Simulated scan of single mutants.
Amino acid sequence: MIIYGTALLALCHLLGIFLGDLLGQALGVKTNVGGVGIAMLLLITARIYMNRKGILPKLTELGVEYWGAMYIPVVVAMAAQQDMVSALRGGPVALLSALAAVAVCAVVISLINRMEHPVASSLAEPVRNDNPLLNEAE
Rank of each mutant, 00 (worst) to 15 (best):
M1N: 08
I3P: 01
Y4F: 12
Y4I: 07
G5V: 04
L8R: 11
L8S: 12
L9W: 10
A10H: 01
L11R: 06
C12W: 06
I17W: 05
I17F: 02
F18P: 00
F18C: 08
F18A: 15
D21R: 15
L23C: 05
V29Y: 03
V29T: 05
V36P: 00
V36K: 03
A39D: 05
M40Q: 09
M40T: 04
L43S: 07
I44G: 05
I48F: 04
N51C: 01
R52M: 10
R52D: 15
K53R: 13
K53W: 05
G54W: 11
I55E: 13
L56Y: 03
L56R: 03
K58Y: 13
K58T: 13
L59T: 12
T60R: 01
E61H: 11
L62R: 10
G63S: 08
W67C: 10
A69M: 14
M70A: 15
I72G: 10
P73F: 07
P73S: 07
V75D: 02
M78Q: 10
Q81A: 11
Q82C: 07
M84W: 09
S86A: 14
L88N: 09
R89D: 11
G90W: 00
A94D: 03
L99Q: 02
A100L: 14
A101S: 14
V102C: 10
V102M: 12
V102L: 12
A103Y: 04
V104H: 05
I109L: 09
L111Q: 07
I112D: 02
R114F: 08
R114V: 07
E116M: 13
P118C: 09
S122T: 13
S122I: 11
A124W: 08
R128L: 14
N129P: 00
N129V: 14
N131Q: 09
N131G: 02
P132K: 06
L133P: 00
E136F: 14
A137Q: 13
E138Q: 12
